[in-house]
Write a protein that binds this DNA or RNA. Structure first.
Lengths: 329, 329
DNA sequence: CTGAAAGCGCTAACAA
DNA sequence: TTGTTAGCGCTTTCAG
């Protein structure tokens, strides 16, 4: 079942069929209809391998993800998918696990026309590989700078700054930071923003700590601090999971959020806005990130020259219910 | 840069190069080395479109997902990915959004060798389409029965039964069920299990309700019931999000879980085990599901005859901290 | 053990 | 507007 069958059935040549397939204007309307009819009757679908082979492109964009249990990724993926399909491309995802044997199968020029790397774990290796293979690609939410690779990141520094500033504006002077794993640049940046906001206000840090990006991580840190009787009036947390854990721990000890202590998170996980008190958090501009990422990739694919640039996006503080004016004692 | 370049460089024919590529034993060791060396030096990678075209298969299995923010899916995906790669296949994921224009791009015989449908939304349409296109496929966590389509589902009835039985064994007699959207068969099945367990114990339902699979959904239902002063001693919830919402609502009203009221969820979302009280829940056997699903698909692909069967897997009750002996009043 | 030739299904010149 | 011809890069006969 191929283009020849359609040609035979419609009484025209394969070339004409191909033209119909590709919406070439130079096909007599009556013939176009004949071809279409034959296709319909034969339930014909062009073979994509053959097309890719002869055209040298696939119409597919690949994206490598590390985790399918995160609102941030989910949102970025949806935007990218939608935008790509508007441009006539398909999105193929693959999960990046510690692949000992060989690399990601999508990282091949004949499988995809371009790649989007979202929060890559093995960033340097991936970048090197894709450069070597000469596949157009862009980085989203990545950690490092690379020459000649467009990337879109969130200004984590600013996020940290604004979250902290928000707490300061509420009158807090004893503010702690509980961040995530220190390998992440984003963690360091959020902390730097935190530090800067404090400094600007003439305050010093109440203390900092770190744990995994998990509820239990935040829970345990908070419990420890409570045991040590070391409590600030506000916590800025490296992400929403940690923040939720902190809130839990405090509540268990009868400490009310935000009445007694304020808590601010990061990322706006789906959950964060549903729990009570609904978490004040910093939302990353996923839609922008995905959209700009796709635009950059399209330019790369179409060979447009580009300033090899890092696009830094402003995050947005979402003030909800877990932060409040400091209680006057 | 193709097989001919390698042939030239190694001084052998393209056929020999092809043989080396495919590990054919009939290649003189010295020649094999020559070819390998040439490949290495040229940084050669065979063109997958050409291979697919000539072989009629791609080595790729497609999987269509609706949501990338869910522990259950995440676990299934990982297992499937691992198992598939053991068998020499690659997993390509695509997100199923309400695609008006055309269907999922992976649903093409020349793009994939098989398809795994995980919790498909438009189940009937998808099944029909794949059957028509004659693509081997299996269903995971689906809703309906289809002729000649292998599927793997969790026994939701049993899950509901065991969760409820657990509560009954703890002495509860006033047990409510808060389920998810009624379009889902799984929701009905869990409820049926709930009903049966009650009946068996000679109890009647305290009441049932439903809401979306969200924290806020469960929260609102529970708040409503509280306002109406209609409280059971235990809630069995359709999923963990709902359960977490219920717990929140109760706690806000000073009702302690599990001291005053027990709550049981479903799915074992990552979160569920981290919040305190850690949620008693029903875990779906994702590893089994993924593994069996892949096995079935492989059989289908290799043309082995199969009883067109639904494999029903037993879920597992995870007793944690949100359920306890009923308080004697 | 090796290679020449044919062809997978399609599109891109080039003619007509 | 249509068709003929020649590949895209690879594997698979079939000879040798």
């Amino acid at each position: 079942m191929n283009i020849h069958d359609v040609a035979k059935k419609s009484g025209l040549s394969v070339v004409t069929v191909s033209r119909v397939l590709n919406n070439s204007p130079s096909v007599r309307e009556s013939n176009r209809r004949k071809v279409l009819k034959a296709m319909e009757e034969l339930n014909y679908q062009p073979n994509s391998a053959a097309r890719s082979l002869v055209r040298g492109k696939t119409g597919v964009i690949g994206m490598s993800i590390t985790n399918f249990n995160d609102s941030f990724y989910d949102r970025v993926i949806r935007v990218v998918n939608r935008k790509l399909s508007e441009q006539g491309y398909f999105l193929a995802l693959s999960i990046a696990e510690n692949e000992d044997e060989g690399d990601n199968f999508l990282f091949q020029k004949d499988r995809v026309d371009g790649i989007i790397l979202l929060s890559p774990l093995e960033e340097r290796e991936y970048v090197e590989e894709l450069k070597r293979k000469n596949i157009p690609f862009v980085l989203l939410d990545n950690q490092f700078q690379h020459e000649d690779v467009p990337s879109v990141v969130v200004d984590n520094y600013q996020g940290g700054y604004e979250a902290t500033k928000h707490l300061i504006d509420l009158g807090h002077t004893q503010i702690a930071y509980i961040g995530g794993p220190s390998v992440f640049l984003s963690v360091a940046e959020r902390k730097r923003g935190y530090g800067h906001a404090l400094e600007e206000a003439g305050l010093t840090s109440f203390g900092t700590d770190s744990c995994g990006f998990t509820v239990s991580g935040g829970y345990e840190v908070a419990k420890r601090w409570i045991r040590e009787d070391k409590l600030p009036t506000a916590f800025f947390c490296g992400d929403d999971f940690i923040a939720l854990g902190v809130v839990q721990a405090l509540r268990e000890e009868g400490i009310r959020v935000p009445h007694d202590i304020s808590v601010v998170g990061f990322d706006d996980q789906q959950f964060a806005g549903e729990f009570y008190p609904r978490l004040t958090t910093v939302r990353q501009p996923e839609a922008q990130m995905g959209s700009i990422g796709v635009d950059l990739l399209m330019k790369l694919i179409h060979g447009e020259v580009m300033p090899p640039a890092v696009t830094k996006l402003a995050p947005q503080l979402l003030v909800r219910e877990s932060s409040a004016t400091v209680r006057l004692t």
